[in-house]
Design a protein around this nucleic acid. Structure first.
Length: 282
DNA sequence: CCTGAAACCTGTCTGC
DNA sequence: TGCAGACAGGTTTCAG
């Protein structure tokens, strides 16, 4: 489900409060509960609660699509994958009775002030890792696209010599961290690059344009608090400003030609056949 | 190095 | 109304 802008929106809410509920940074954990075992990658479910107990949630941050909750001793990494979401709520209802878990709640983190942080995940693809060293999970990720240290030259060097189509490369989190299906289609449309273009055939100018487009669509996504589509509403409205994603047969915002949908690397892929000419006919 | 398919899951929507 | 099939914001693994 969420890509970089959606995860960024969630992390900001964990810090200052937002649709997910009141802020959780600074609260002290009293324990945890595992409602679906596979949602917790490590440690074993029976050690989870004890290990959380007494640690303060010091900071919330993001690396790629990972949510990083820094505790006093450990780090809790959460990846929402396709359908995960976080929620903050009181353990008790207004009537003072225990609040029963909602449908698809998978993990509960309890704070010592009566609040809890909940991972809800209908499709059960989401994962959490409670680890001492987050680097063991995060070290494989490519650069942060919005980091000022990430330049067009960096992107060019990562695409150099790669014969693969540009779209699956941009989805590869070891090449660049944070892009998913929506923002990849949006960036390629803005950059006027066909998703099947072999990366190595892109000119210097095209790579610069792509670099700028990636950063532009991600920043717009964050500014709009992410995209909210399907049945999971997250408060953002970027979905109302898509250029190509999910707009099959609707007019291209640039030239009016109907947007086409193809499948690339098993992912639905949306593009304008005029603005993004096929590499075969170019 | 690259591609494609399958696996992990549940829910929604479309068309017959 | 029912039902089959396609599809969904992600990642890993395996075969070729």
């Amino acid at each position: 489900m969420p890509e970089l802008p959606e995860v960024e929106t969630i992390v900001r809410a964990l810090k200052v409060g937002g649709r997910e509920g009141p802020p959780v940074v600074g609260r002290v954990l009293s324990g945890g509960q595992v409602l679906w075992e596979r949602s917790l990658a490590t440690p074993a479910a029976d050690q989870f609660s004890q290990r959380l107990h007494g640690q303060t949630l010091v900071e919330a941050s993001r690396r790629g699509k990972f949510i990083q909750l820094s505790l006093t001793e450990d780090t809790l990494l959460v990846h929402l994958r396709m359908s995960g979401d976080l929620r903050v709520e009181p353990v008790l209802t207004n009537e003072g009775t225990p609040r029963p878990p909602a449908a698809h709640d998978r993990l509960l983190l309890f704070f010592d002030d009566g609040m809890r942080l909940v991972l809800n995940d209908p499709r059960k693809f989401g994962r959490a890792w409670l680890v001492t060293n987050p680097n063991e999970i995060l070290s494989r990720l490519g650069p942060e696209p919005l980091d000022s240290a990430f330049t067009a030259v960096d992107l060019a060097s990562r695409l150099k010599g790669r014969q693969r189509a540009i779209k699956p490369l941009l989805l590869d989190q070891t090449v660049i961290a944070g892009l998913g299906n929506i923002y990849t289609d949006e960036a390629l449309h803005l950059a006027k690059i066909h998703p099947l273009t072999p990366a190595a055939t892109l000119t210097v100018l095209e790579v610069e344009h792509l670099w700028l487009s990636i950063r532009s669509v991600l920043q717009e996504g964050i500014r709009r608090n992410g995209a909210s589509i399907d049945w999971v509403y997250r408060g953002g409205d970027f979905q109302n400003h898509f250029r190509a994603y999910g707009r099959s047969s609707q007019p291209c915002p640039v030239c009016g030609t109907p947007i086409e949908r193809i499948v690339v690397g098993q992912r639905g892929t949306h593009f304008c056949p005029i603005c993004q000419p096929s590499p075969l006919t170019k």
